[in-house]
Amino acid sequence: MKKIITLFLFGLLFSCNAQKNVSTAMPKLVSECPKDGTCEVEILKNKQLILHYDDLGGMYYDIKDQEGTTVIHYQYNKTTQANLQDGHYREDIIFEIKNSDKSLDLTDSELQQVKLIFGRHCFCKGQTGYFKIEKGNLQLSAKSAISFNLNFTCDKVPQIIKSISVK
């Protein structure tokens, strides 16, 4: 009887599998990523981008569950030497679309209709944080799958990524 219970518990232990929380398959990245880093894009279905400001005017964001909207997060990570303590460098481009949007063509100030923000993270005194993007162009199609072209500039801080194309 002990053997049966042991085998049952052993089988139960290996039959359990953690639920994976993957929102969608990773789309193919068409834009060229700088050779000194890696680029990833993540599409978060039924999520909402919420922008916040701290007491000093700095921007940060939250992503929360919300039916009817999708958040798109593009990230560039520069490859650095492991022995450099403050050598990291990352850029983020984040925006939100409505699930009902089948195509968008936004220019300059219209980019804030999708809450387009640019983030720069490094040991660069006074030149890090998140910033609204108000200069550029976004063309998006979401008929069978999401694809987009984004060209933008951020006047507040230097940037490496200025153009993204995802299909």
Rank of each mutant, 00 (worst) to 15 (best):
S31W: 15
Q85Y: 13
D54F: 12
Y74F: 11
Q112E: 09
Q127N: 15
C124T: 12
Q139G: 01
K98P: 08
G126R: 11
I94F: 09
I43C: 04
T69C: 07
K125T: 15
A82G: 08
F118A: 01
Q113W: 03
F148Q: 01
K20T: 12
S165N: 06
K102C: 14
C154E: 10
T128V: 14
T38A: 10
Y53F: 13
Q75K: 15
Y60A: 00
Q19C: 06
K47I: 07
H121R: 05
Q159P: 11
Q127S: 15
N149Q: 08
D86V: 00
D101I: 05
S163R: 12
Q19M: 10
M59G: 00
T153S: 11
L140R: 06
I161T: 08
K115F: 10
Q81G: 10
L106Y: 06
I94N: 06
N21K: 14
S31L: 03
L116C: 02
D108C: 08
Y61E: 08
S144H: 11
K64H: 07
Q112N: 08
K28A: 07
I63T: 03
G129R: 14
I50G: 04
A145W: 12
F148P: 01
E32M: 08
H88K: 10
S165G: 02
T70S: 00
K115Q: 01
I160E: 15
D101N: 03
A18E: 02
V71T: 06
G68L: 00
L51W: 04
I160M: 09
N21R: 11
I160S: 09
P158E: 10
L49P: 01
Q75F: 12
S100C: 05
F152V: 03
Y74E: 01
I117P: 14
L29V: 05
S103F: 15
E32K: 09
T6L: 12
Q112T: 09
K64S: 06
I93Y: 09
N83S: 07
D108L: 10
Q48W: 10
N21Q: 12
D65S: 11
F148S: 00
Y76I: 11
